[in-house]
């Protein structure tokens, strides 16, 4: 067993873990941070993406012991209290999710992309999220959402023309 200490979504945890414990299982089974799901065993799908010391990582391909001393942010720690991150808001506004299983990882990947590239092109967005598979959306609305969030984060307001249909009324 090994002792690991990490700050997850603002809270410091210190635990004994077996060296083989995957970070994703430590988060889910050890700490009860079940907002980050697991979708594969080969680091392809990206559902388990979290931020580790400021970088997006696939938490199924990191051992908990490798995260000793790290600062982890999951989808559950992304919002600032009740205020969602602009990427979260944009995913909702642009219908960038359906079943929602890829969403935690997809949102974390998008947040990471926009941190490094605040003004991505559509092509750069598509490549920026290429490590995250979605089976529901065909990615189009995810790409729209990320472009819109980029615009919002740059202070230019939300991206226009989210849909070929007229905008909705007030979201519930």
């Amino acid at each position: 067993m090994a002792r690991v200490r990490m700050r997850v979504d603002g809270v410091v945890y210190e635990d004994e873990v077996s060296p083989r414990t995957l970070l994703t299982h430590h988060l889910r089974d050890g700490l009860g941070r079940v907002g980050t799901p697991i979708g594969c065993d080969t680091s392809n799908c990206g559902s388990c993406t979290v931020s580790m010391d400021g970088d997006s990582v696939k938490s199924c391909s990191v051992l908990a012991v490798q995260a000793d001393g790290a600062e982890i942010t999951t989808i559950q720690g992304l919002a600032d209290g009740p205020e969602w991150h602009p990427v979260q808001k944009a995913f909702r506004e642009h219908h960038g999710l359906q079943c929602g299983y890829c969403t935690p990882g997809m949102v974390m990947a998008a947040v990471d992309l926009l941190k490094r590239n605040p003004s991505p092109t559509e092509d750069e967005v598509r490549h920026g999220i290429e490590g995250n598979l979605c089976r529901c959306t065909g990615y189009q609305n995810i790409v729209k959402a990320v472009l819109s969030a980029a615009s919002e984060l740059r202070g230019e307001g939300a991206h226009p023309g989210a849909f070929s249909t007229p905008p909705a009324g007030v979201p519930a």
Binding site: S43, G46, T49, M52, D55, S56, V57, K58, S61, V62, A109, D112, L113, G128, E130, G131, N132
Partner: peptide
């Protein structure tokens, strides 16, 4: 190589 998250590790 791979994708951004993998390149971070």
């Amino acid at each position: 190589v791979a994708d951004p998250a993998v390149r971070h590790r």
